[in-house]
Structure formats: structure tokens, C-alpha cells
Design a protein around this nucleic acid. Sequence first.
RNA 1: GGCCCGUUCGUCUAGGGGUUAGGACAUCUCCCUUUCACGGAGGAAACGCGGGUUCGAUUCCCGCACGGGCUACCA
Length: 525
Amino acid sequence: MDRKPRVRFAPSPTGPLHMGGVRTALYNYLFAKKMGGDFILRIEDTDQNRFVEGSEQYIINSLKWSGITPNEGVGFGDGPYAPYRQSERKLIYRKYAEQLVKEGHAYYAFDTPEELEEVRLGMEADKSTFSYNSITRNNLKNSLTLSVEEVKKHLDSGNAYVIRIKVPANEELRVNDIIRGWVVVNTIEMDDKVLFKSDGMPTYHLANVVDDYLMKITHVIRGEEWLPSAPLHVLLYRFLGWENVMPAFAHLPLLLKPDGNGKLSKRDGDRLGFPVFPLNWKDPQTGELSSGYREKGYFPEAFINVLLLLGWHPEGNQELFTMDEMIEAFSLDRVNKAGAKFDPEKTKWFNQQYLKKHSDDDLAKIVMKDIQNKLKTGEIIFDESCPSNFESLISNLDYVKEAVRITREKVHFTNEFWSVCHFFFIPTDTYEAAFIAKKWSDKAKEFFGTLKQNYLNLKIFDLASIENIFKEIAIASGVKPGEYMQLFRVLLIGVSMGPALFDTAALLGKDEVIRRIERALKKLP
RNA sequence: GGCCCGUUCGUCUAGGGGUUAGGACAUCUCCCUUUCACGGAGGAAACGCGGGUUCGAUUCCCGCACGGGCUACCA
């Protein structure tokens, strides 16, 4: 049966979207695009208790920033299967749950949470584990054990109840996973999962199967944490009579902590100092702030490129991919089986690769915005110590562009530019002490005095003249030019490490270079 | 505990019955540069263990170990 490939990303609005979730969305998106199919976003908000204000919008914003755009779904325009928010589909699920009861594949259960807890405790005391299954259900309060009248009485009196699936006693269930092959489970191991909750909402198991059927989903691509319940879902498709249009399953490996064990969590980011979320997120309850890749200064292209390679590998050795290249190269059968430890170091390298693709002009514009930003946050302080031309310099595109050109190979992120080129905008008044102690001398003082005079007389203050004069004077005073080059850098920018010396001087310009030499001469012993 | 999934350099991974086990990040050395960085060259670095099957297993099978996931009226 040939159906148009349709896949879905179906997160719960229970908090910020984890980068693992973004990867799942990415793989779904790439698969859909590659196959010429549809990619939909469905919001699975059936748990009212865990609902977190703002997280749905966060999910939408994250996908948008990442360039992963669904062609149907919440926040991206309704398609033919709206609504895409499960809470708005509430009435749909009951019908199917009742149908399952009618056909003997599910049953009403009236046990209260307290009663169940009691049974659980009793069995634990007996050193066994409680499970609501084909054996225990015979001793519990449900429509299988109660008489028709009693069941009717419970239902009519409005007593709380749930609907549970009636798992067969001893049957082999097989799931063919695209990534893992056949997974076989005996129904003995399964419990009678709740399908329909007492609050009138379905559980994930029912809602996901019903919606995937109704929305004509052909491939379910989701995290490995769902693998254990996949057999249950297969059983549901069978009971509902939909096995012939059941989607294919692909369970993705998990993203693991960089160190130690376990899956990647918010805590790891805090602990190790890297984001685990695409965007900044402020918890509406606690006010706690979690940092995002966007605000850390990552290009979205770098972010998803990292995600792409965490669990998937192309046929060749290509590492850098445009979105189109990802779509072209992607296939589910090259997805890995094993979980991937996330390495924050490599993400920095990826960002640098993307930074290198940008022109000086692009970067300069970004840097100018970043400077404004840093002024606002107080990271850059503009006060009396700033020269009068500070504001004209930071808004001079050509000047910033040149600063970018001669420092760009030093940074991984655009927001690092300030730390490597601030001295082009704010003159220094301190000089690297250790270096001065070692290299500053009367002879050097004399040298720079002469240099200043010569620069002063220079008509055209360009790169070649700056360098030639420097070298001529050095030779005339009997030293190798290299001897004073780093010292010159210290006089100009305060530190011995920095961009190419004569480029630096050229950008600063004649007047500023002379001012800085004079200031240093005055300040240094 | 039970069930399910997994296991190639520190990390992401390629590969697959006979290979010098390949690439990338990180790391180290050298070159470039009288700085840093970039770039270039090179180095160190891996098939978890034990049994099979086979002329030959890192590759296939089994067991073990280890890791991960699930085990809610959460998704």
C-alpha cells in the first residue's frame, strides 16, 4: 500500500524543549523532506498536571529558530487534520476507548489509587512486584470481575474509573523497528496499561495511536524511551483494526551525558556549563533561567549540524551540511543504535566552521549589534575613560569590518569578538606587567620616541609605510625589528598577544597610534 | 528485581570474515608566524571479556560483564 509519507513530532508542553527533542524533530523533518512527504507538529498535552505555561510557544520558537518547519500543526498553520493539540481532540479518544471495551479488548477499572497502592504495598511486603495484568485483574475491581449490574451502578453513580487495555495472557508480540530490526515481547511481561484516565483524558498510548491513525502517519520516528511500549501500541493497532495501516517505527538512540552515566539532562548543562536547550528558558514557577544555544551565540545551522551527527552518519566523511545537503544525504538506515554521549567541545568547533563561512561584512553587522547589546547589559561600560570618538567607532561599519577581518580567526563565536578587539574602540591604560618588566628599557624608550617622530612626519599612514619605517628605525638603532615588535603591540593594545601588529596600527590610524605611543612613554618608567 | 535495547580511539563515528581498522573533535610534536590564532605536516590513541562457527574473527552465534531505557490514571 503506497501512502504519502507523513511523520510527526509530538512533544509535551511540560517545559523547554530539550536538544534531544530538537534532534528527533530534525530527523523527522529530514525524512519527510527527503521522501517528499509531510511533517506535522502535534502537541501532546493530555497531562494537565504537568502542563507548563509558555512551553508550547517555546517549542514553536525553537523549531523556527532551528529552521525545522512543519508543514502542518500547532503554530505552523492547520492542515486537513486539525486540531493538532490533543486537549482539543479530547472527545475523539473516548469513542475509541469505549469501542475497545465493547469489543472485549479493554475494560473499566474502578480501583481507587489508594486501593491499588494498598495491593502494591502488600505484594512488595511479599517480595513481589505489583502489576495490573492478566492475573491480578481477576482480583481487582473492574468490569471483568464485577457483575453487569454493579458495573452499571458504578458508571451511573459517576464514580471515577479508568479504561484499561486487556492484554492477552500469553502471546508473542513483534515490532519491526527500522533501526533495530525485530523486537519480540511476550504479553506475559506487559501490564494492562490505562488507556483512558478518570479525568476524561486519554493516556499517551491511546492518544498517540488514535492520532497517528487519524492523521495518516506512516512513520513514527521517536526516542528510544518508547521502545518498551511499542508492542503495546502494536496491540492497540490490532485491537482497533488498523494493523494494515500501522506506521513503521524507528526508535532513535538517546543523547547521553558528556561524563558519567545516564541520559543528558538539564542538570548536566548547569553543572558542565553548556546549554541543553535551543533557546533561553525562564521557568514560570521558580524563575530559574536555563541557557540556550541561541543566546550563547550559536548559529542555528551549527546547532542542527551538531545534532545531525549525534546518532547519524553519512556515507562519506562529510561533516558540514547545509539543510539541503542534510535532506539529500539523510536516511534512517544510517541511524546508529547506541546512545551518543554529547561532547560540548565539538559544538564549539562546528560553530567556528560556520562563522568562517560568513563574510567580514556579515560578521561586522552582527558584532555591531552585539556591542550595542553588551552596552545595554553593562558588559561594556561607556564612561569618561572612553574616548570621545567611541560612539562613532562602534557605529562605523568600515572600521568594525576591518577589526573583524584582522581578528576573525581567533574566535569561535561572534560574541567573542569584543574580547579580542575591544582595544580598537577603547584605548588601554595598563600594560602587561610581566612583559614590560622583561622587555622595557631605556633603549626601547628611545626607540619608540624616534618611531613616534617618524610616524608624525609620515604623509601616508598605510600598512607598508608603517612597517617599513618601523624596520628602518630598528635597523638604524642596531636591533632586529622583531626585537621590538611585541613591545610595540603592548604599547598599542596593552597586551603582547593580539592581531597582526601593523594591521592593528593601520586600523588605529596615525593620530591614535601617536597618542598611544605618547601615553605609554609617559606611563612607563 | 523484571523486561527491552546497546557495546570500535577520551568523545562523535566509518568499516566489516583476511584492512597498515578510516575520518572528525580534543590532545601532543613540528612547520608557518619574532605574539596569539588560523593554516599545513606528523604522532599517540579503539574493536569489553570468555566460548563457539571458520583455514581465518573486531566483523557471525552463544554466554558473561558493562552501559542505557522502561517498569505511573507522565509523556
